[in-house]
Amino acid sequence: MASATGAGTSGLRETVRGLLAAHWRAEHGYSVPNPGTYPHLWLWDSCFHAVLWAKLGDGRAAAQELDAVLAGQLAGGMVPHMRYGGAGPDTWLGPLPGTSSLTQPPMFGHAARVMSDAGIQLSAATLARARAGLDWLWENRRTPEGLIYVVHPWEAGNDHSPRWDDWGAPGRTSDGYSRSARTAWNKERMAEVSFSADGAACWSTSFVACPAAFNAYTAFNLRELAAITGDPELEARAAALAEAMDEQLWDDSEQLWSDLAVVGGGPSVSIPISDGVMGALVTADRAKARAALAQLADPARFGAPYGPANVARSHPAYDPDTYWRGPAWPPLNYLFQQAFRRQGMDDEAASLAKLTEAGAVASGWAEYWNPDNGRGLGAVPQTWAGLVIAMQQ
């Protein structure tokens, strides 16, 4: 993918359009994140693709991406985190032949909001399916205290995060990190997951957690869908979830939202990661939001030349080159910017957009990159790096 350095906004847009088009699979109706590394559909990736197509003015492709996400919805309402295509199914993801049995951050509410704001007509069926997906989380994945839980690290989106270290996962940074060992451990955890009649994962005997970021994403998407449907119940659920986060997950010592261990786990749930800022997307507490967001530009915490590091740079777990152990991630930066804008922090939002653009271009439009030098990591190029165009003012 050619660099867009110096090409301005129009050059960025054409670069991203070309990236999405090169990864488009007409027979499936979606763009794959990366044809070699990620040949399937992933829930939040395709939701971000819908956002990008909408920003590029292609309502047809945006609608196809969002409908492709929701086409995998199970009978009970869960939206799977993967639909298989290309290379065939990953059978260790559950009992279903065409999709995984796990879910992922429900970014379809936000995708629908962006599309609606762009003047793209959403069908009643699409909106109903998005509502059913959020209903499923609310009705099937909520603790008695009102938080949303996940039953596998893959569901959280940050599957190799140091916050999961105390579940017995191998490859701690202090021991010499091994991504392959951690991936094997994640696969083994599927043997402890139980499933409902429609194939949806419902519990685990070894790993259950209430991640701060996943709760924030759910509340955010409830609110986004409510904004276009006018549904007061969705808005009330978003407010209740945000309040539960503030009461149960706010870590005053770190000035971040931390995760809660339900089955397994330990102190690692409080390791300072940038995902702990995501409560700023939904909290009604302005002081908490600003205290967390301020850390994204602080070099002693997450601040770095190519966008926020995923782990506090002063923490022993920080490794800027290792998957979910320190690199900068374009989808997180995009969501941080959403939080900045919600808090009226427009200068900070604009600054983050520039850092993210610099990282995307320097990395070759990578899946993630070293926040200190912009070196591309993971799959290169990856479609969600194109979120830089959605961050432009």
Score class of each variant (00 low, 15 high):
L241E: 00
G98M: 05
N370W: 02
I389F: 08
A353N: 07
G94C: 11
I389W: 08
A284E: 09
P106E: 05
A328Q: 10
E145F: 02
A181P: 09
L66E: 02
A201N: 10
V282P: 11
Y38T: 08
S3F: 04
F220S: 01
Y318P: 07
V150L: 13
P106G: 09
V114F: 07
D319N: 14
E14P: 00
M78Y: 03
W203E: 02
R25S: 09
T143L: 13
S174C: 10
I148Q: 01
A292T: 08
A300K: 15
A112N: 09
V311S: 13
S253R: 14
R113E: 12
M190F: 14
K55T: 12
V16Y: 00
E139T: 04
A292F: 11
A169K: 15
D198K: 14
L256P: 08
Q248P: 01
M190L: 07
E139M: 02
G85W: 09
G199F: 12
H160L: 15
S174L: 13
P162S: 08
V262G: 07
T37Y: 04
D166Y: 10
A61Y: 04
R286H: 03
L281F: 10
A63W: 07
G11C: 04
W185D: 09
D346G: 12
V51I: 15
G276Y: 05
A261Y: 01
V361M: 02
W324K: 10
L352K: 11
W329H: 07
Q104L: 04
A289V: 00
R301V: 05
L234E: 02
N186M: 15
S351F: 00
Y306P: 07
E233R: 07
S123D: 06
E155Q: 14
F336Y: 15
S253I: 13
L137V: 03
A309S: 15
A75P: 01
T9K: 15
T37I: 13
